[in-house]
Simulated scan of single mutants.
Amino acid sequence: MSRRFSQVDVFTSEFLRGNPVAVVHDAGAVADQDMAAFARWTNLSETTFLLPPTRPGADYRLRIFTPGGEIPFAGHPTLGSARAWLDAGGVPATAGRLVQECGVGLVTIADDGGRLAFAAPPLRRSGPVDASDLAAVVGSLRLGADDVVDAAWVDNGPGWVGVLLRDAADVLALEPDYTAMGDYLVGVVGPYPEGSDARLAGVHFEVRGFAPSLDVPEDPVTGSLSAGLAQWLIGSGRAPSSYIAQQGTALGRRGLIRLAAEGTEVWVGGDTVVGIRGTVEL
């Protein structure tokens, strides 16, 4: 059956510089195994399926698949799917605000003149990383314990553990051992020094996200990870209440993620570009 299909580049205003997500529209009748098979076929970090909502207050329901299976939440698919839904004529119940139903519940997405931002869901797991987990994670990054400033669980669904390094250059120099990483999903962040070109351009941190257990060795730009990192870094005073993180540099991308704390919420936003519109036989 022919269904509308979109591919959206997320966290960029320049097509081909962000993180793409494949979006299948009107997917209510697509079988679970076909969703999983299509996600393996696209071989993108995430493929999503738009369905009618089942919960009051939601504008649409979203299912999110990596090549390795379904996950309850992810950031760049949330923004990219919202852009695809709007681009296809979706009209939210409340102007300027979309409500997405997904595996973690209802996620609010603000539309600020075309730039979308989602309210970070609560962390499912937070706090210090125990010694055995930390040793395994640090070892998989080919680092020593002294190279790490701090680490914390920043899990809002996928299972992220965050690792803070001293400098963005240390983040960019990483050459992880994906086999040793096992089932850990590891997000690494480091600050750009004052006076650097990145800081002068408004970028505070470099981020990299590794998820080999989901068949995504390195993700180009990761909204869920940046959401969890922002909740940790802002909450601990290591980051200002509003900042920009850059991700994808090591892969030849330039994703820019805008983080801002407003009261008790952290908002995660960025630009989105619809690069492909068509149909898919699914």
Rank of each mutant, 00 (worst) to 15 (best):
S6N: 10
F11M: 14
E14Q: 15
F15L: 09
R17M: 13
R17A: 15
V24C: 11
A27R: 02
A27G: 08
V30E: 07
A31M: 11
D34Q: 15
F38P: 01
R40V: 15
W41L: 13
E46P: 04
T48C: 13
F49Y: 14
P53G: 05
G57V: 08
G57W: 00
A58Y: 12
A58C: 13
Y60V: 04
R63A: 12
P67C: 12
G68D: 03
F73L: 14
A74L: 05
G75R: 07
G80T: 07
A82D: 03
A84F: 01
W85T: 09
L86F: 00
L86N: 01
A88K: 10
G89Y: 05
V91M: 10
P92Y: 03
A93N: 03
G96L: 09
L98T: 10
L98R: 04
Q100E: 12
E101D: 12
E101C: 08
G103Q: 11
G105P: 07
I109T: 01
D111Y: 00
D112L: 08
R115M: 13
A117E: 05
F118G: 01
L123W: 06
R125I: 01
R125C: 01
G127E: 00
A131M: 01
V137D: 03
V137S: 04
S140Y: 11
L141N: 02
V148W: 00
D150M: 02
D150P: 00
D150C: 03
D150Y: 02
A151M: 07
A151W: 04
A152Q: 13
A152P: 09
G162E: 02
G162N: 02
R166P: 04
E175Y: 06
Y178L: 08
A180Y: 04
G182Y: 00
V186N: 01
V189Q: 04
V189N: 03
G195D: 10
S196P: 13
D197F: 14
L200E: 15
H204Q: 15
E206T: 04
V207G: 10
R208I: 00
F210V: 02
P217Q: 12
P217T: 10
E218I: 14
T222W: 07
A227K: 13
A230T: 13
Q231D: 08
Q247R: 08
A250L: 09
A261W: 10
V266P: 03
V268L: 05
G269L: 06
G270H: 12
T272Y: 05
G275W: 00
V280S: 02
E281N: 07
